[in-house]
Amino acid sequence: MQQIINFFLRNKVFLLYLFLMFLATVFTIQSHSYHKSRFINSANFLTGGIYNSVNDVQSFFNLRHQNKLLQEENNYLKSILYNSQGELKNAYDSTQILGNYKFTPARIIKNSYALSNNVLTLNKGKKDSIKQDFGVITSKGILGIIDKTSKNYATVLSILNTNIKISAQLKNTNHFGSLIWDTKSPNIVQLTEISKIAPLKKGDTIITSGRSIIFPKGIRIGTIENFKLDDAENFYTINVKLFNDMTNIEHVYIIENRSKEEINSLLNNE
C-alpha cells in the first residue's frame, strides 16, 4: 500500500499530465462526432456575450455591404411578388401565412472558415425557441445546421465542416447526392454520389433536395465548377462553387420545419 502511494506521489506530475491529456482527447473526439453532447461550445453566456458586444462594434464597418445584400434580396423578392398574379395577395400580412416552415432572422456573431470543422455562433437561442437541427440559410444560399443552443445564443455547424452531410440535387433534373467538404477551400464544396447517367454541365445550379426534414426543397447552394467520375466510375464527384461568400456573412435566417415531429414519429414507427 505504502509503495502504491509513493508511486503516485513520485509521478504525480506525469499522472496529472496523462489525466489532462485524456480530458483534452475526449473533448476533441466529441467535437469530431456529429451532435455529441459536449460542454465545450461557444454558446454559453460568457463567450457569447463577449462575441456579441465585440460584433456590435465590428458590424458597423460592414453596414454598407450588408445593406446592399439585403436590398438585392428585397429586389429579388419584390420581383417575384409583383410578377405573380393573384395568389400572393396577402403576402404582406404575416398572420395569414401559416406554411410548413417558420423563419427566424438572426445575426452571426462569430464566423469561422479556416479550420477543418467550422462552427459559427448566432445571437438567437432557446429564448427564441431555436432548437437543435434547425436549418440556417442566408439571402444567397445555404449555411448550416443548428448544433447547440443556450438561453441567448446558438452554435451552427457550417457546411464547411467535415461532420456534416446535406442532401442536395441538380436543379434541372432530380438526381441527388450528398454535400460534403474536403477542407481545401472555403468557396468550394463537393457533391458526391451523383449517378453516372446524370447530365452535367459546367455552371449548372445545385439546390437542396428537400429529402431531409431540415431544409425545404429548392434553396440555392451553388454552381458546378467542375466534375469527375470517382475511382469505381459509378458516381460523379462535383466541385460546387458556393453562392455564399462564407468569409463575409452577417444576416441569416433560421428555418424551423413545423411538421418535423410528425415526420419523425412516422419514421420511428416503421
Binding site: L16, M21, T25, F27, T28, S31, H32, I40, L115, T155
Partner: peptide, 30 residues
C-alpha cells in the same frame, strides 16, 4: 502541478471560444 493545470486551462479557454473541442488544451498541456 499548478503550472500544468494553468496551461490546460489556457488551452481550454481558447477552445471554448473557437469551438474546437480540446485541441488547444492538448497542445498547451503537452
Amino acid at each position: 502541478m499548478v503550472f500544468l493545470f494553468l496551461s490546460f486551462l489556457l488551452g481550454l479557454t481558447i477552445d471554448v471560444f473557437s469551438d474546437s473541442g480540446g485541441v488547444h488544451a492538448a497542445a498547451s498541456v503537452t
